[in-house]
């Protein structure tokens, strides 16, 4: 049995606040956070919180879910191009009745990520949904 508590606790910045990294030496912005800039190899990147808005780069629907996701299937997943530049892979929320299309504006929300484990730990984190306030 895995000890999930510390794992998701240490991910809280990224999962709840979309905290990634910014390079002090070049314009590099990264999600998930990293210690070394892959562009200029500078070490000591700083925390950088992304604004949570972006556009849909690609999407799919999972019909054959892995263990731990059965109750949610089928569910939509996507890659989102964040406003600040990076791509992020994520689940898509609130997509019922929505015609997903590449390029559509999306925004971050906090949701339950997977089925509750046997021991009751509920994992929350970011998902992206069609941006509110636009005509459907």
């Amino acid at each position: 049995m895995t000890v999930e508590l510390p794992r998701y606790h240490r991910l809280r910045g990224a999962y709840y606040r979309l905290e990634g990294s910014a390079c002090p030496a070049c314009p590099g912005r990264y999600f998930p956070p990293r210690a070394v800039c892959p562009a200029c190899r500078t070490a000591g990147l700083r925390m950088f919180a992304f604004c949570g808005r972006g556009t849909l780069y690609s999407f799919s629907r999972v019909l054959q879910p892995p263990r731990g996701f059965a109750s949610m299937a089928p569910y939509a997943v996507g890659m989102v191009r964040l406003e600040e530049g990076p791509l992020i892979s994520c689940q898509l929320a609130d997509t019922d009745g929505v015609d997903l299309s590449i390029g559509m504006p999306v925004e971050m929300v906090t949701r339950k990520l997977r089925d509750a484990e046997e021991h009751g730990y509920i994992v929350y984190g970011y998902k992206f949904r069609p941006r509110l306030g636009r005509a459907r």
Partner: peptide
């Protein structure tokens, strides 16, 4: 942490 934990399968 950033793909599998989100239910994003290999397919």
């Amino acid at each position: 942490d950033y793909e599998a934990a989100h239910g994003i399968t290999f397919a």
